[in-house]
Computed example of a mutant assay.
Amino acid sequence: MKAGFQTMLTHYGEENIHGAVVPPIFLNSTFAHDSFEDFQAGQGYYYSRHSNPTLEVLEKKLAAMECGEAAKVFASGMAAISAVLFHFLRQGDHVICSTPTYGGTYGILGPYMKKFGISVDFIDFRDTERVRAAIKPNTKLIACESYSTFFMEVFDVAAIIGIAKEHGLLTIVDNTCASPANFRPIEWGFDIVIHSASKYLGGHSDVIAGVVISSKEIMESIEQIEYGIFGGALGPFEAWLVTRGIRTFGLRMKQHADSALQIAKMLEENSNVARVNFPFLPSHEQHELAKKQFDAPSGLISFELHGGKASAARVINRLKYFKIGVSWGGFESLVYSPGMHGENEQFTGTPYEPRMEHLIRISVGLEDPADLMEDLRSALESA
């Protein structure tokens, strides 16, 4: 019987162990076998760096959420990204990556991969012809995010997938920002989905974790090589925490979406706000494309002030419910500005650079939206 999304999150992948409503945590590092022959045959588990029953519960749920065949969980989102990139890329390969992109992804694909002779072009995916024009004979894969985490820009997914398939390129998408509640990339034709499970999947800001979801063939290949030798496996307790978070994932995402839309509308009407970067607003130039591709928003919004860095600092310092911090997707509301980090190589010399200092990003948590809106209104008076 096919179950609904929240029902699947509650029950799928869990074993009935001694009638426990919550599956136990297998904290052991190693597993014993009954015989020489059993061990040699590879039956069961043998070492938690490779596999563990607690991790398998989570992996089954995550694969089902993203409509994938298999999943592996990692010690962080960056461990997941790194394993995938090192698995598929070889010296001399070329990558096309969307921009803006997550800072860690930019760091590994840009400056870091150069020492292995791997090149990358960072392209604005809103211009699909620029993506097509960037393809070279040695292009191996296309990497992107479901939408960008600073400006919330979206691109024509079907067009990018069509270009990739036309040229036989592998496609990798980081779906952390949108989450599988709102967008399921494999259904659109992506080959591999990556998440920082520290964010919406965990939902409680108490765990660092990552996940890769794909076909059984791809996941078995990554598991046999990078998963074991890089040592990036998620710990059993951390896996248990993410599983706990997933049980309320569907409900939490509905609240994030509803609150974010209310707050985005309020910000749009505030005279101290120059622009709201939220494509789910009817007034946004990408609204129709966002509606076509995503079921709902997540809780990430950014907005730009008329003033510069000092103006952003005044607003941020007056906020009470929005705590200053990186990341997103937890129960608590957070505020962050890229101007806090000074110069960012990814944006230097691009049209984004002058917008960064007066840009404020908020992660809308699970507090009452009326309280969050009043907090923002009061803070914006100082802009």
Rank of each mutant, 00 (worst) to 15 (best):
K165D: 02
M373Q: 15
T101W: 10
I81H: 11
Y46L: 01
E59D: 07
G235E: 11
I360A: 01
G202I: 10
P338N: 04
G235N: 12
E69A: 08
V21P: 00
S214A: 15
D371Y: 13
S382Y: 12
V326W: 06
M78Q: 11
L319K: 12
L359G: 04
M113T: 08
G162Q: 05
A41W: 08
A257S: 15
E332W: 11
L261A: 11
F122S: 11
A313G: 01
E69L: 00
S179A: 14
G68Q: 05
A313I: 12
N138G: 04
G307T: 01
E353Q: 15
F303Y: 12
R90C: 06
A312V: 07
K309H: 13
A158T: 09
I222T: 08
E56W: 01
A133W: 03
H195I: 04
L55S: 04
G168C: 07
F237A: 11
V273I: 14
I108R: 09
I222D: 04
S311R: 07
D295G: 09
I17R: 14
I118S: 01
T54C: 06
I160A: 03
R184H: 10
K216G: 01
A379Q: 11
F183Q: 01
L241H: 05
G228P: 06
V154R: 03
H18W: 10
D295C: 07
Y45D: 05
R184V: 15
T149A: 12
G232Q: 10
V211A: 15
E238G: 14
E153I: 07
S51H: 09
E37L: 12
V120M: 03
T101G: 05
I123Y: 05
F331V: 14
T128Q: 03
D206V: 06
K115P: 03
R49K: 10
A75T: 12
F88D: 01
L300T: 08
I218G: 02
D121I: 06
L251S: 12
F347C: 08
N28D: 14
M253Y: 04
G189R: 03
A264W: 05
I222V: 13
I17N: 07
D375S: 10
D191M: 09
K140M: 08
